[in-house]
């Protein structure tokens, strides 16, 4: 069982480009439809939990499924398996990038990716906005976070904590 779990998550980790959300369809197929390790509604619960709690959605899903199937060691095995392909891939990538340090085409390509990444980060914020900024107080928190981080007045962790506390207190009103 542990080996099967390991191989499944190894595969999921190795074939998802583009972040954790890209993993969800693969998890759905492998874990729910092929192996029947989870039900559809448990899967939705995991996604909801993963969105509510800190951490990459890929890790959250692997830990949860692993625990459900084989207890503590299951969660360790599944989490390791999903991280391992990244480890190998990034290590190879670093070696290749070092070799290409003086290659003009490679350096121009990396520079060309900068506008793409800028666009991706800004669009990530825009696509999170509708579900995150709903109430008027949310807008104030959003604007506050923008100003504080733009001016470097407060470190991001404290901005997040303060924003959470405001949200908590606002719940009592």
């Amino acid at each position: 069982m542990l080996l099967k779990l390991f191989l499944s998550f190894l595969k999921i980790g190795a074939f998802t480009f583009g972040g954790g959300y890209a993993m969800l369809p693969l998890i759905q197929r492998d874990i729910i439809e092929i192996n029947h390790w989870l039900t559809e509604s448990e899967f939705l619960d995991i996604i909801a939990t993963a969105e509510m709690t800190p951490g990459p959605i890929a890790i959250n899903s692997a830990t949860f499924v692993g625990y459900k199937l084989s207890g503590f060691w299951g969660s360790v095995v599944a989490t390791l398996a999903i991280v391992l392909p990244s480890f190998v891939a990034i290590t190879l990538l670093t070696v290749i990038l070092n070799k290409l340090k003086d290659n003009k085409n490679a350096q121009n390509s990396i520079r060309g990716m900068r506008p793409a990444v800028t666009a991706m980060i800004i669009t990530a914020a825009l696509s999170l906005a509708p579900q995150s900024i709903v109430r008027p107080v949310d807008f104030i928190l959003f604007a506050g976070a923008c100003i504080l981080s733009w001016k470097n007045w407060l470190n991001p962790i404290y901005i997040l904590l303060a924003s959470g506390v405001v949200g908590l207190l606002f719940g009592f009103i």
Binding site: A125, L128, A129, Q131, S132, I133, V137, D138, F139, L141, F142, A143, G144, A145, C146, S149, I159, L160, A162, S163, G164, V165, V166, G167, L168, F170
Partner: peptide, 8 residues
């Protein structure tokens, strides 16, 4: 409360 700050 954390979410809007994350977007910002």
């Amino acid at each position: 409360g954390v979410r809007p700050a994350v977007v910002g």
